[in-house]
Computed example of a mutant assay.
Amino acid sequence: MFPITRMRRTRASPLIRDMIREAVLSPRDLIYPIFVDETITRKREIGSMPGQFRLPPDGVVNEIDELCDLGIPAVLLFGIPETKDAAGTSALDEEGVIQRTIEAIRDALGDRLVIITDVCLCEYTTHGHCGIVEGEKILNDPTLEKIAGMALSHARAGADIVAPSGMMDGMVSSIRGILDENGYQDTLIMSYAAKYASSFYAPFRDAADSSYTFGDRSSYQMDPGNADEAIREVELDILEGADIVMVKPALSYLDLVYRIRSTFGMPTAVYSVSGEYSMVKAAAMQGWIDETKVMYEMHLSMKRAGADMIITYAAKDIARYLEELR
């Protein structure tokens, strides 16, 4: 009771504030997404995501050198292939855009960086959906064989972690099975376990050339109104063999990050998505907010909610800011 208890005593000194801070953000918490575009020969800025670029396959290593210098330990690779078809055939090509990029990173950097790959068909299909399509229905079970084969090809190329993002039932089990059968027991699975049908993804579709030609993704991605369902989804993926579970998007779903981390005690990732990034950038361009400090505060809130790792387009900016603070 006041005056014996004075909460402000612990806030008076910057050194004491640092000593008792509960949530701490570090560059080691960050994963940087990279878009690798097989159709370009030099990097191209993404209009709806200022400061983000599509990179040609031979331009990725230079980008990653900078990440290593900043202390960022991991990348998440998305591929934009030269050819697409209804079945996403090029996703399984052993000489595909992501497969070749993984090999180039390994040749240049060895084990200095954790390579994570997105495992989904949406960037590789002409219709832009995450699975095999019949009419306007996205088929679950025929899709599993495709994404399992895609994951295996990434593991063969040298990926450390494969990250299935299509929200297909049984995707983790199918991938774990084919990896184990082929001697890749040590390849991790980071499952997009609670991925919502969110309006925050719009700039990503521009970045990854993955807009859909009909309908939407609400028949396989989660309803934003459902929380208990996310717990069930995560539990199933853990039982199927997921090593890391993910919540996507971040800011509007931090309650789920907290619940999932508290319930399962599993390594938990969160994806700060394109819409979150672009909103901050747009507001900063208008002079309404301090971009760097807002980005830092947003990502600190993700750590406070329980995220062990954060996939974010702001990774480089945050790492530089943290260096300035130090």
Rank of each mutant, 00 (worst) to 15 (best):
E45V: 14
E45C: 13
I46F: 08
I46S: 05
G47H: 03
G47P: 00
S48W: 02
M49G: 10
M49K: 03
G51A: 15
G51K: 02
Q52H: 07
Q52Y: 06
Q52F: 06
F53Q: 02
F53K: 01
F53V: 09
R54L: 14
P56G: 04
P56R: 04
P56T: 04
P56V: 12
P57C: 15
D58Y: 03
G59S: 12
V60M: 02
V61W: 03
V61A: 11
N62Q: 06
N62C: 02
E63W: 00
I64W: 14
D65A: 09
D65K: 14
E66F: 04
E66S: 15
L67G: 05
C68Y: 10
C68T: 13
D69Y: 04
D69F: 07
L70K: 10
L70I: 12
I72W: 05
I72D: 03
P73S: 09
P73L: 10
P73K: 03
A74D: 04
A74E: 15
A74F: 05
A74G: 14
V75A: 12
L76S: 01
L77D: 00
L77A: 00
F78R: 00
G79E: 07
G79H: 01
I80E: 08
P81F: 12
P81M: 15
P81R: 08
P81H: 05
P81V: 06
E82L: 09
E82N: 06
E82C: 07
T83I: 12
T83S: 08
T83F: 12
K84I: 08
D85N: 11
A86P: 02
A86Y: 03
A87E: 14
G88E: 14
G88L: 13
T89A: 15
T89I: 06
T89G: 06
S90P: 14
A91S: 15
D93F: 07
E94Y: 04
E94P: 09
E95R: 10
E95Y: 14
E95L: 07
E95S: 07
G96F: 13
G96W: 14
G96Y: 04
V97M: 08
I98G: 05
R100G: 00
T101Y: 01
I102E: 00
I102V: 09
I102T: 00
E103W: 07
I105F: 01
I105W: 00
